[in-house]
Amino acid sequence: TYYTVKSGDTANKIAAQYGVSVANLRSWNGISGDLIFVGQKLIVKKG
């Protein structure tokens, strides 16, 4: 599943929404920190 980042989103918020850990969200998308951008497409695997 892909999720498009919206204004006000955070890695924590997206992870919680899908029931996954922030560490997994980072791993699936090659993100090292919490910096995400509006319009960015993230791979999300439901927990």
Rank of each mutant, 00 (worst) to 15 (best):
L25C: 04
K41E: 10
I31G: 04
L42H: 01
G47Y: 12
T4A: 06
K46W: 14
G30C: 11
G47K: 10
G19T: 04
D34K: 07
N24K: 10
G19D: 08
N12S: 15
T4Y: 11
V5H: 02
K6P: 01
N24W: 09
V44L: 08
Y18P: 00
I43F: 09
D34M: 09
G30R: 09
Q17L: 14
V22S: 05
T1S: 10
Q40M: 11
T4D: 05
T4M: 09
N12T: 15
S21Y: 04
K45W: 13
W28T: 02
V20Y: 03
G30Y: 08
F37L: 09
A11I: 15
K41M: 12
Y3D: 01
Q17I: 13
Q40E: 07
N29A: 02
D9F: 02
Y3P: 01
S21I: 05
I14G: 00
L25F: 04
G8F: 05
T10M: 03
S7E: 15
W28N: 02
Y18K: 03
G19P: 00
G19E: 07
L25N: 01
Y18M: 09
N29V: 02
G47S: 12
D34L: 08
V5N: 00
L42I: 09
K41C: 12
Q40A: 07
V22G: 04
I36P: 04
K45M: 12
K45I: 11
D34E: 10
A15H: 02
G19F: 06
L25H: 00
A16D: 11
T1H: 12
I36V: 11
S27D: 15
D34T: 08
A11S: 07
K13F: 09
A16P: 02
K13I: 10
Y3C: 04
G39V: 04
I31E: 05
T10A: 03
K13L: 11
K6L: 09
G47F: 12
D34Y: 08
V44W: 02
K13V: 08
L25E: 00
Q17N: 09
Y3R: 01
G8R: 03
G8N: 06
N24I: 12
Y18I: 07
T4H: 08
V22N: 03
K6S: 07
G19Y: 06
K13R: 09
T1R: 11
I43D: 02
K6E: 08
S7C: 14
R26W: 11
G47W: 11
V44M: 05
A11N: 03
G39L: 04
V44F: 05
K6C: 08
T1E: 13
I31T: 05
S7L: 14
Y3N: 01
Q17D: 10
L35T: 13
V44G: 01
T10K: 04
L35M: 13
A11V: 15
K41T: 12
T4R: 07
S7T: 13
G39W: 06
